[in-house]
Structures are given as structure tokens and as C-alpha cells.
């Protein structure tokens, strides 16, 4: 394969306010992972456990922004990745976490840590190590420039493979019927 002579592209991935379902779907490319690792190497990712993103060709973001740490990580990816891809409903439009957006944050914290049945002496966690929740959950394109989007909850392994292989081949990614899904 000619790719063996080319330098490998560096790819970073992370899950912000997501459920790791998109990462699981990424693993659903199954044996095509062997083809992929011939072409790319992973930087920061749950697959490598590297904690900070270095200079990369492609950054893949799962999940939206629900707290301050999500915003920091997203900005680190944008600063380091030539191409940034939003993967899955939560990164694309806020998804499930954004379903809290019509409630006030105070009322949610109150409900979860104080008011709910069985929470005797409950208190709202205030450890300084905990990132502060954002007032509303936002999709990532509302904070940084995003180059490509793969919608779906999660997108199928085939959809992820199509976008990655299009990009690696220097083509504009295209999904088309059957691969483009919002659910």
C-alpha cells in the first residue's frame, strides 16, 4: 500500500457531554480498524489514554458542551487539529443533554441533590475540582469552527468509515441516503 511510505495522519478523539456511544460506533468499523491504523496514529483519545491533545491532522469530538471543562477541551482540540469533526447528535445539536435546556440549572441541581426522595442531608457538590455546569447545553459549532459533521445517535460505523476514508483520500465527505441519520 502506498500509504506505508506516507507519514501517518495524527487523529485525536474525545467525548464531551456524550455517552461514548459514538466511540463505540467508531469501533463498529470492526476489522477496518486494521486498515485505519495503517493510515493514522492516535493522539489524545480514550483509546490511548493520552490526556492532552498535541498537534493533529484530525480531531473528532463526540458530545456537546455541558460544563466548563468541555469548553476547555474543545478549544484545545480546535487549537491543535487542522480538521475538526463533530460526531453524533450531541456534538451536532446538543442531543440528549440539551433536553435540560428548558429547565433552570438551579432547579435541576435542587431536584437531583436536594428534593428527590431519599436524599436526606443532600447537598449540591461544590468541590473546586468539579467543572462548573453551563447554564445551557450547547452544540460545539456554537463555540468553535467545526469543519465536518457526522449526525446520528450514534452515526453508524459505516457512516464514520465513509467520512474518514473520504477525508483520508482527500475527497469532500458525503454520506447520502442510508448513511445520513439524525437518530
Amino acid at each position: 500500500m502506498e500509504a506505508a511510505t506516507k507519514p501517518k495522519l495524527r487523529v485525536a478523539t474525545t467525548s464531551l457531554a456524550g455517552c461514548f456511544g459514538c466511540h463505540m460506533s467508531f469501533l463498529d468499523i470492526d476489522e477496518r480498524l486494521f486498515d485505519l491504523v495503517k493510515l493514522v496514529e492516535f493522539d489524545r483519545s480514550p483509546l490511548t489514554d493520552i490526556k492532552h491533545c498535541g498537534p493533529c491532522d484530525i480531531g473528532i469530538i463526540e458530545g456537546g458542551l455541558c460544563n466548563a471543562e468541555n469548553v476547555h477541551v474543545l478549544r484545545e482540540f480546535r487549537a491543535n487539529c487542522k480538521t475538526l469533526i463533530a460526531i453524533g447528535a450531541c456534538a451536532v445539536n446538543g442531543g440528549l443533554p440539551a433536553q435540560r435546556n428548558h429547565l433552570s440549572l438551579a432547579s435541576i441541581l435542587e431536584e437531583v441533590y436536594h428534593a428527590q426522595h431519599g436524599l436526606v442531608d443532600g447537598f449540591i457538590p461544590n468541590d473546586p475540582e468539579l467543572p462548573l455546569p453551563l447554564d445551557k447545553v450547547h452544540p460545539i459549532h456554537e463555540v468553535v469552527k467545526v469543519d465536518y459533521f457526522i449526525p446520528g445517535c450514534p452515526p453508524s460505523g459505516d457512516a464514520i468509515w465513509k467520512v474518514l476514508t473520504d477525508l483520508l483520500a482527500g475527497r469532500e465527505p458525503e454520506l447520502g441516503h442510508g448513511l445520513i441519520h439524525y437518530d
Partner: peptide, 24 residues
Amino acid sequence: FCPSCEKSGNCQLQATAYEMDMMS
């Protein structure tokens, strides 16, 4: 929020957005 909508897959808004390649 398509994943929680019973109309998903039969929705004209969603299907038209697919047709128009609405990625975001």
C-alpha cells in the same frame, strides 16, 4: 430531538433535510 421522536424515520422534515444533505 430526533432520537426521542416517534415520528423519526417517517418525518418529512427529517427526510427532506436528509435529501438536502443537511449535516448540521
